[in-house]
Amino acid sequence: MKGGHGGLMDSIYRRQRHIYDLSRKFYLLGRDGLIADLAPPPGGAVLEIGCGTGRNLIAVGKAWPEARLYGVDISAAMLETARKAVTKAGMADRVVLAQGDGCEFDAAALFGREAFERVFISYALSMIPDWQGALRQAARCVADGGKLEVVDFGQQDRLPKFWKQALFGWLARFHVAPRAELRQAFEGLAADMGGFPHSHVLYRGYAIRGGLIRV
């Protein structure tokens, strides 16, 4: 994964990963609310796609101490940081991390299981070129009766126009592109794969939260 999108992510985060969690807490809004709502069943498996530094998985582990935790990311640099963070948090025996493309990873080969009671993606779809492919892959990993939860940048609908222009321009410098069709994508997943979609905007459109309940 030295080239392609993995190589790009490594080049972006090779240095940024050291300050990522400190800086991102001010504008990656809605992550903690998603984690608080995951509520996996006792002993349930939770998978994060685009797990980055491991910050979210550690938070899930603290909130749901009986959950089994898995994370996949395309960036080797970010996974190096995640492994150190997980070990420091005392969760090395609970968290399994693996490198893989969010659009086509083999969950059985990486983790020894194909389905997870909870799958979530936090501010990663806006960085994945084939984000719709990644969303379909995430839905395929959800066990029957399980849930897919996503939070990412919204379209800033009820915020000043200059704010949207400034934010989107700044995000583009880091190859981040908020997905305007995210709500429709949840509905399409439900129609194609079965289940019930949901979505709603947060913070006057700053972020969007949504997902799918599989049946």
Rank of each mutant, 00 (worst) to 15 (best):
D37M: 11
G205F: 07
E149A: 15
L34E: 01
I213A: 13
M78W: 03
R17T: 09
L29V: 13
A36V: 08
H5G: 03
S199C: 12
G169N: 04
L171F: 14
P40E: 02
G33R: 11
C103G: 07
G100N: 07
R83T: 11
L8I: 12
H18C: 09
K161P: 00
V96D: 00
E66I: 05
K88G: 08
L167P: 00
E117L: 07
E66V: 07
A107V: 10
A185Q: 03
D130T: 07
K2H: 14
I19F: 12
A76G: 10
L182Y: 03
V151G: 01
F153E: 03
L79S: 02
G4Y: 07
S122R: 03
H18R: 14
A190T: 05
R24W: 06
A63I: 06
H175E: 13
V86W: 04
Q99M: 14
E187N: 05
S199Q: 02
Q156C: 15
G195V: 07
A98K: 04
K147C: 13
Y27V: 11
V142G: 07
G145P: 05
A139T: 05
V142I: 10
P129V: 08
G50P: 01
R24S: 15
G3A: 15
A92I: 08
V150I: 09
L135M: 07
T81C: 08
F105V: 07
A124S: 15
L135D: 01
A82F: 05
Y13P: 04
Y13W: 13
G194F: 05
Q155D: 13
A45I: 03
I128R: 00
A82S: 04
L148R: 06
F174M: 13
W64H: 14
L212V: 06
Q132G: 07
V86M: 04
I208H: 02
S199R: 00
E48C: 06
F26W: 14
A92K: 11
P197I: 05
R183P: 04
A207H: 03
G52S: 14
L202F: 04
A139V: 11
R68H: 09
A108T: 13
V86F: 06
D73N: 02
A67Y: 06
D152Q: 08
R24M: 14
A191N: 01
V201W: 11
G44E: 05
D37I: 03
Q132E: 15
G4N: 05
I12Q: 10
V201E: 14
W64N: 10
N56T: 14
Q155Y: 05
G3P: 11
A172W: 05
Q165M: 14
P160K: 08
F116L: 06
L22E: 12
K147V: 15
F26M: 10
E181M: 09
R55C: 06
